[in-house]
Design a protein around this nucleic acid. Structure first.
Length: 287
DNA sequence: AAGAGGCCCTGATAGC
DNA sequence: TGCTATCAGGGCCTCT
């Protein structure tokens, strides 16, 4: 669920809290993530100083002052929780993204600083933590990924060349990280709606105008989502804590059988499956 | 090589 | 009340 905007929000919040701080201790409470956390992972991180927190695509990166890194992916259900130490030297719970209640089940990693700690929780274990020795190794982790949708490399020339002879629907390409990295299922649906393109349309059949729209609306949707703090769905129990509000702006996602949001459009939002991912689109204005 | 399909994983929800 | 089935989807894998 965390796509580029959600990871960006986490990066921004996390950066404010842990920049320049020294890791005092790392506690692994559950090593089972997508990749098993290796035995000495905690010792590798101990005493490292956070230089800055950055992001590439859906990856979160802790940049240590000694030029090594910790690469974090939230998978589908990963959340990061911030616990502050109060004057009584006790940790009090505040959440940082998505859930305001500190989960205990499915906690995996705890990183302790002098005045606070962060906890990584991931019920479905699709996320991962990885220690990266140097920049070269970091870049190799991203070498198979396409350009970020917000970068200048995601341009008309790139799309036209990439789509040449691609006999596959455009929806699959938008969520294919090899083509463009950072867009997930939710935003892909929204981007295609605004671009007025049917998700089933073959990439090779897209016109120049279609490609221009995809580029433009990819940037519009993601920047807007970042501005709104990301999207929070399936988290209805939240009372406090930081939640995004972009889900209120969804035009098609989860709106199956409802009327198209466009005033003069008589269309109905349909739900179909494209390569096993739920896909929502207007049956009239997306051609 | 491109494309189709399956698998990993757990929690929420629907249906009987 | 309790069981089973289905869905959620990011990334990676295999097979054709």
């Amino acid at each position: 669920m965390p796509e580029l905007p959600e990871v960006e929000i986490i990066k921004q919040n996390l950066s404010k809290k842990i920049k320049y701080k020294k890791i005092q201790e790392v506690i692994i409470t559950n090593r089972n993530l997508r990749f098993k956390i290796p035995p000495k992972f905690d010792l590798l991180l101990k005493n490292k100083v956070i230089g800055k927190v950055t992001r590439f695509s859906k990856y979160l990166i802790l940049n240590f002052s000694d030029k090594s890194f910790c690469l974090i992916h939230l998978g589908m259900s990963g959340t990061i929780h911030l616990i502050k130490k109060n004057n009584l030297n006790q940790f009090t719970n505040t959440s940082f993204y998505n859930s305001p209640i500190l989960p205990i089940k499915h906690n995996h990693v705890e990183i302790k600083f002098k005045d606070l700690k962060i906890i990584y929780n991931d019920p479905r274990r699709f996320g991962f933590f990885k220690y990266i020795k140097n920049e070269k190794e970091l870049l190799s982790k991203f070498s198979h990924l396409g350009p970020e949708p917000l970068s200048k490399k995601f341009n008309l020339k790139y799309l036209l060349k990439y789509f040449l002879s691609k006999k596959k629907n455009i929806k699959s390409f938008l969520i294919d990280q090899k083509f463009v990295s950072g867009i997930g299922n939710i935003y892909a649906n929204e981007i295609l709606f605004l671009s007025k393109i049917n998700p089933n349309k073959y990439a090779m059949k897209l016109s120049k105008k279609d490609c221009r729209r995809i580029i433009f609306f990819s940037k519009v949707v993601l920047l807007n989502a970042i501005k709104k703090g990301g999207s929070s769905i399936r988290d209805f129990k939240s009372i406090s804590g930081k939640r995004g509000s972009y889900q209120k702006e969804f035009n098609v996602y989860l709106r199956q059988d409802l009327n198209c949001i466009k005033k003069k459009c008589p269309g109905i939002i349909k739900k179909i499956f494209i390569s096993n991912r739920s896909t929502f689109f207007c049956n009239v204005c997306q051609k």
